[in-house]
Nucleic acid binder design. Structure first.
Length: 816
RNA sequence: GCCCGAGUGGUGAAACUGGUAAACACGUUGGAUUCAAAAUCCAAUGACUUCACGGUCUUGUCGGUUCGAGUCCGACCUCGGGUACCA
């Protein structure tokens, strides 16, 4: 059979379309599998990362379909976002036109890969119907008290009059006009994800079976729960006066109450109220005020990378236990968002505090003693130990002292035990056009009110100028003027749009519902109860924290609003590595991209799919290699060509194993090993590369023998195993030889693995020297004596100190 | 800076719970076939060393545990992902 990829791929893609081969059934009595890839952003053309993502999920979906499951494997488009606006700024194309043209183009590209997506449930998140339901969800969240407004610091470009995303800031300057970016306080909408912090943390436990450990660790660290002591530092009398009696105290949070006697200074964030007051009223030198302004101008991520810096504020607080005065500093490493924006500093037992104290020559007082790490002045010792120099707590262990100090603080009303999370509420406001409008209305009389449900969607106006300056929704002549849904008076719309993570936090639930119900329902409860959870979610490791955490959060919120019954959206998660070329991520700017279309045209979709799954395990980074693609093509061609050695049958041939030649027996063993591998690969780890290697070994072994029924059995099984990976080729072979009757769960035949003898390697002092052939029934003594005879060359004249036999594995003789 | 990973031949990689390092491929070299080429088939291929049998070394670096370490422990180096307004 001549291998002609273009011909067979067009043929089978047409066949699958005509027969709706990949649509899920609405028969909810069947066993289901929901296989999902993270949906793409329609950037213009698909890239190798997409090919990888969808080849993986497609293999999984096809495998389950073959095993008889009702499979949902949908696709859609994460189609709001900045690139569409950037394209509009650069090329004066309307974001909507640009986006939907990209979708059309990329849809064709995906289709050419032979991906078994359900085509009837496709949508784009920028569709007005999607926006309508999304705004409904937002309003329900608002009514539940999960949405609130507050101010926070954002990147602002004064010349463009716009907020900049972190990505649009290049070395502190605006990407468009190169003007210096400032940090500006602006109001925005926030979602109370912190209300779910504890549950999001706790439920990591139930994900341990199906999620990579590293992702859960990242999520746990991100949520960052810690228990500790919150207490107040009272300002000294002079300092209080200096601050015009506006402030009496401020609170700090510490997880190391046991080190409290080691406090030698305290530090405030540059945005702290007291710091602001000092600056505004010029209570410190102009020099210092200028330095503080400089600190405030640096974004928090840059601050973390910069050297620790601080300024003495010339005020003191009173240590709550010693009564001594402690100086107050402002420091760039103290974050306003966490722990009240103030810390107690213990340079002896905290690395950051130590670095800072050394730089500014602040005292270092030891308060913990550790036997293993003797205290020295050159570094902080952060280990637990016994308290010293700590008043009545001296001699206690760190653990005991923490409890005891917290107890005393609570008893004396000086402080309390608190649980703190690093996780912050989710700011969803974006001052951009190409997003879902936040459906809120500002009314002079009624205040902030949600749009009436019957008026949804609040759609985007199409007649806008996108120049990169200002917010197009704000500057639109009429769009924002509306009537208040409560009092019917004049009012204005909110002009912020939503973060695109909002759309990707619930799209997977939308797919569960049949398109016929999409107009009226956001999801159909019966359908989502049947299809959720996603049995296998596949996507890039770069989403390990944000997207996955937001999606988990939404799932819990939607559950609490009665839309679904699940606590967690994704049962199993596979995080794929990136596709690299010349050691770097493929990107247009680096000019190292490989166009999937060109590969498909030259070699066919099956080659692209085989290469990408063979080159590396899915979780690992994948280095692109042109000649290896050629190799993948050769294998498919060989597999296709040699199919003429098999006969036309409609079921597995019966073979008498004992009557076969050694080569034929080995070939059968290799074929069944590949089948076994296939079962293993799809149940744990998805190491398709090793499955493909097994298939190659099997084909090599088949080629070294001549028995026709062994060939036939081999192809019946190999075409079955490889179908998820190179579907077009396998359907073609299967149609020609087996009338498409070989796609089902084939049972493993144990007899091909049975053998009476085994080969054992002999190692001397752990080094492999020779091997012996022994019967499986041999005793340990027999094995040792045979081993010694075979290895005599290496052990003669030496003493055998130890003899080790690892059953069925090896023999090790320790000699001297 | 902080959190999470990765590092094995010329290249992509394999090695289940500590037990034969380099399976399967790519590349390279040699050979067969061919007028020639493509395609295909066969063989060799970690490094050093030896005429050869063989020997020595080798999983980023250094150290440790063990009869035995790519795998476990400790320190370090390099690269990658995330870092809350890229998606």
């Amino acid at each position: 059979m001549d291998y002609n990829p273009v011909k067979i791929e067009t043929k089978w893609q047409g066949y699958w379309d005509t027969n709706s081969s990949h649509e899920p059934s609405n028969d909810f009595t069947k066993e289901k599998k929901y296989i999902l890839s993270m949906f793409p952003y329609p950037s213009g053309k698909i890239h190798m990362g997409h090919v990888r993502n969808y080849s993986i999920s497609d293999a999984i979906a096809r495998n389950y379909r073959k095993l008889g499951f009702n499979v949902l494997h949908p696709i859609g488009w994460d189609s709001f976002g900045m690139p569409a606006e950037n394209a509009a700024i650069k090329n004066r194309v309307h974001p909507k036109k640009w986006t939907y043209e990209n979708i059309d183009y990329m849809k064709k590209e995906l289709n050419a890969l032979g991906l078994s997506f359900s085509k009837t449930r496709e949508f784009a998140t920028s569709d007005e119907l999607y926006t309508k339901h999304e705004q409904h969800i937002f309003i329900e969240m608002f009514k539940k008290g999960l949405v609130y407004q507050k101010s926070s610091t954002l990147n602002w470009c004064e010349t463009c009059h716009t907020v900049l995303a972190n990505e649009q800031v290049e070395e502190g300057c605006c990407w468009r006009c190169d003007n210096e970016v400032e940090q500006r306080e602006m109001p925005g909408y926030y979602l109370k994800i912190t209300d779910y912090a504890q549950e999001l943390l706790d439920d990591c436990k139930q994900l341990e079976k199906g999620w990579p450990k590293q992702v859960l660790t990242m999520q746990e660290n991100w949520i960052g729960r810690s228990e500790g002591l919150e207490f107040d530092f009272l300002l000294s009398d002079e300092s209080r006066e200096k601050l015009g009696n506006k402030f009496l105290k401020y609170s700090v949070f510490t997880t190391r109450a046991d080190t409290i006697f080691g406090v030698t200074y305290t530090a405030l964030a540059p945005e702290h109220e007291i710091v602001k007051y000092l600056c505004q009223n010029k209570l410190i030198s102009d020099d210092k005020i200028a330095k503080i302004k400089e600190m405030q101008a640096v974004s928090s991520r840059d601050r973390a990378q910069n050297e620790k810096e601080g300024i003495a504020l010339d005020i003191d607080v009173i240590h709550p236990l010693t009564g001594k005065k402690v100086p107050v500093w402002v420091a760039n490493f103290v974050l306003i968002e966490y722990g009240g924006g103030a810390v107690m500093a213990v340079p002896a037992h905290d690395e950051r505090d130590f670095e800072f104290a050394t730089k500014y020559d602040l005292p270092i007082i030891q308060s913990i003693e550790n036997e293993k790490n003797s205290f020295d002045e050159s570094k902080a010792t952060t280990d637990y130990g016994k308290l010293v120099n700590s008043g009545k707590y001296t001699g206690m262990s760190s653990k005991k002292a923490q409890k005891s100090i917290i107890y005393d603080f609570e008893k004396d009303g000086l402080g309390k035990k608190v649980i703190n999370f690093k996780l912050r509420d989710w700011g969803i406001s974006r001052q951009r056009y190409w997003g879902a409008p936040i459906p809120m209305i500002h009314c002079k009389k009624c205040g902030l009110v949600p749009e009436a449900i019957e008026n949804l969607p609040v759609a985007l106006p199409e007649d806008v100028q996108i120049s990169g300056e200002g917010n197009p929704l704000d500057s639109h002549p009429t769009w924002k003027h509306t009537t208040c849904p409560v009092c019917q008076g004049k009012a204005t719309r909110e002009t912020d749009t939503m973060d695109t993570f909002f759309q990707s936090s619930w799209y997977f639930m939308r797919y569960t519902t049949d398109k016929s119900m999409w107009e009226d329902k956001v999801f159909d409860k019966k359908s989502s109860d049947y299809w959720m959870n996603v049995d296998q979610y596949v996507g890039g490791i770069e989403h390990a924290i944000l997207h996955l955490l937001y999606a988990r959060f939404f799932t819990k919120v939607l559950r609490d609003m009665g839309y679904s019954s699940v606590d967690e959206p994704f049962e199993n998660l596979l995080t794929q590595g990136m596709v690299l070329k010349d050691g770097a991520k493929m990107s247009k700017s680096k000019g190292n991209t490989v166009d999937p279309d060109a590969i498909i045209q030259k070699y066919g979709a099956d080659t692209a799919r085989l290469f990408i799954l063979f080159a590396a395990p899915p979780q690992k980074e994948l280095e692109w290699n042109d000649s290896a693609v050629e190799g993948a093509y050769k294998f498919i061609k060989k597999f296709s060509d040699r199919s003429q050695n098999a006969s036309i049958v409609s079921e597995l041939p019966k073979i008498e194993h004992d009557k076969l030649s050694k080569e034929s027996q080995l070939a059968r063993k290799k074929v069944y090993e590949a089948l076994k591998k296939s079962n293993d690969v799809f149940t744990e780890g998805y190491a398709f590369n090793t499955l493909i290697a097994s298939c190659m070994e099997a084909l090599n072994a088949l080629s070294s023998q001549e028995d026709k029924s062994v060939w036939t059995e081999g192809y019946f099984i190999l075409a079955n195993i490889l179908e998820p990976i190179i579907p077009h080729t396998c359907w073609e072979i299967s149609e020609n030889l087996f009338g498409l009757k070989n796609f089902y769960k084939i049972e493993i035949l144990q007899e091909v693995f049975e053998s009476s003898s085994m080969t054992l390697p002999i190692t001397i002092n752990g080094k492999r020297r020779c091997e012996i052939e022994v019967s499986k029934e041999s005793s340990k003594e027999e094995i040792f004596s045979l081993a010694k005879r075979s290895a005599s060359k290496w052990i003669d004249g030496k003493n055998i100190i130890k003899e080790i036999y690892v059953p069925n594995k090896l023999v090790n003789l320790v000699v001297k």
